Amino acid sequence: MARFHIGLIINPLAGLGGPAAFKGSDGMAEQALALGVEAKAAQRTRTALEQLLALRERIEFVSYPGAMGGELLAQMGFEHRLLGELGDGATTAEDTRRAVRQLQDAGVALILFAGGDGTARDVCAVVNASQPVLGIPAGVKIQSGVYAISPRAAGELTARLVEGGLVRLASGEVRDIDEAALREDRVTARWYGELCVPQEGGYVQAVKQGGMESEELVLADLAAWLESEWEPGVRYVFGPGSTLHGLAQNLGLETTLLGVDMIEDGQVIARDVNEAELFALVDGHPTYLLVTAIGGQGHIIGRGNQQISPRVLRAVGLERLRVVATKRKLATLEGRPLLVDSGEVTLDDAFPDAVRVWAGYKEELLYPLAR
């Protein structure tokens, strides 16, 4: 079984300023350590990772050496590989930023980071807007909406993702309080940006009580969202299947049920194209590729849509692939991952461990993918 790749960054200095009554740790770590304050970030990260021990055979961590992650992962027996190097002194904000860059370049599905609002600022400064991240609360100040409510909750949510549960993606604000002003009893907070954060998705309460998600209503909602988000001059490939055909019908577009069609500026510009025609349409032109999953089976590439060939996928870019599937359809997989079988092993291996799924009006889920 292919392993699920998770990035891990620990800010070992996070939280030191709290017990020392410094109102934060920015620039105060050495003074806190001199007062005998013990670092807690690794222990809080351990609490999160303990929720993943039962899934150890399914996970590979990618992290930084020593106190930034490698040391703890080795102690806990997790499969992992390390990137980068650390100097002899205390870790810095630049170490965190460098680690984020390298982890996302490594293609991890999720970056877990332990720290406080200062750490979230460092992550936000360099991370790609589409990279899912989740904070393990370990700092003094936790104002940002990018942290789990507890270390254990961070681990449980990550476990849900690895196991194939429905995990919604949302934007979380990064905010930080001015520590110098706080030490003078003035509370001044500032907005620094937003991060892509997984949240508890799955079923709404009505489904658990016996209600059923309406496929027709969901497709109407998805159509309204897509229509409001059309990018001028950008092409949208609609793959085969009743889900995308129904989506197109809600947009007032005549597409083929079992063919591949091309939409641009809200109009069908090509219907039922073959592989060569599709490649000519996407090569060198900004494009999004919309596919759906085969219900009960999970394939999104390589079953019934061979027009979407490896060269088409490369021309479009895997980062511009979107899966369209209702939660009801995903439930038929019973936790199994989505599947790709492009015909080229190297390309299949380049797919991320989890893909974005459009599941409702402005509702994106992060769902595991296997090769």
Score class of each variant (00 low, 15 high):
residue 3 R to E: 12
residue 4 F to L: 05
residue 4 F to P: 06
residue 8 L to R: 10
residue 15 G to P: 05
residue 15 G to R: 08
residue 18 G to F: 09
residue 24 G to Y: 00
residue 24 G to E: 02
residue 28 M to L: 15
residue 30 E to T: 14
residue 30 E to M: 13
residue 31 Q to I: 11
residue 33 L to C: 03
residue 33 L to W: 00
residue 34 A to R: 13
residue 37 V to M: 06
residue 50 E to K: 11
residue 50 E to W: 00
residue 55 L to P: 11
residue 55 L to W: 09
residue 60 E to F: 02
residue 60 E to H: 10
residue 61 F to P: 06
residue 66 G to H: 07
residue 66 G to Q: 13
residue 67 A to T: 10
residue 67 A to G: 01
residue 69 G to C: 07
residue 72 L to Q: 08
residue 73 L to Q: 12
residue 75 Q to R: 15
residue 75 Q to G: 01
residue 77 G to E: 12
residue 82 L to Y: 09
residue 86 L to H: 00
residue 87 G to Q: 09
residue 88 D to A: 15
residue 89 G to A: 15
residue 98 R to Y: 01
residue 101 R to T: 11
residue 103 L to N: 04
residue 107 G to L: 11
residue 113 F to I: 04
residue 118 G to T: 04
residue 119 T to N: 08
residue 120 A to S: 14
residue 126 V to C: 04
residue 126 V to D: 05
residue 127 V to I: 15
residue 131 Q to C: 09
residue 134 L to T: 12
residue 139 G to E: 03
residue 140 V to E: 03
residue 143 Q to T: 00
residue 145 G to N: 10
residue 148 A to D: 02
residue 150 S to I: 00
residue 151 P to D: 01
residue 152 R to W: 03
residue 152 R to E: 15
residue 153 A to I: 02
residue 157 L to G: 03
residue 162 V to D: 09
residue 165 G to E: 14
residue 165 G to D: 11
residue 167 V to K: 03
residue 167 V to M: 06
residue 170 A to V: 10
residue 170 A to N: 12
residue 172 G to Q: 03
residue 172 G to V: 08
residue 173 E to F: 04
residue 177 I to Y: 03
residue 180 A to I: 02
residue 181 A to W: 01
residue 184 E to N: 14
residue 184 E to W: 02
residue 186 R to F: 02
residue 187 V to E: 09
residue 189 A to F: 07
residue 201 G to T: 10
residue 201 G to W: 04
residue 202 G to R: 04
residue 204 V to I: 15
residue 206 A to C: 01
residue 206 A to W: 04
residue 221 D to R: 10
residue 228 S to P: 00
residue 230 W to H: 05
residue 240 P to A: 14
residue 241 G to I: 13
residue 244 L to V: 04
residue 249 Q to K: 13
residue 251 L to W: 04
residue 261 D to R: 06
residue 261 D to N: 08
residue 263 I to F: 04
residue 277 E to L: 07
residue 279 F to Q: 13
residue 281 L to Q: 15
residue 289 L to D: 06
residue 292 T to I: 11
residue 293 A to K: 14
residue 295 G to S: 15
residue 297 Q to C: 05
residue 299 H to S: 13
residue 303 R to P: 14
residue 303 R to C: 08
residue 305 N to V: 12
residue 305 N to T: 13
residue 309 S to D: 11
residue 310 P to M: 06
residue 311 R to N: 11
residue 311 R to T: 14
residue 312 V to F: 08
residue 314 R to E: 14
residue 316 V to P: 00
residue 318 L to R: 12
residue 321 L to S: 08
residue 321 L to N: 09
residue 324 V to R: 09
residue 324 V to S: 05
residue 325 A to F: 12
residue 326 T to Y: 05
residue 331 A to I: 05
residue 333 L to H: 09
residue 335 G to H: 05
residue 335 G to N: 06
residue 346 T to H: 08
residue 357 V to D: 01
residue 360 G to V: 00
residue 363 E to T: 12
residue 363 E to N: 02
residue 363 E to L: 12
residue 369 L to W: 13
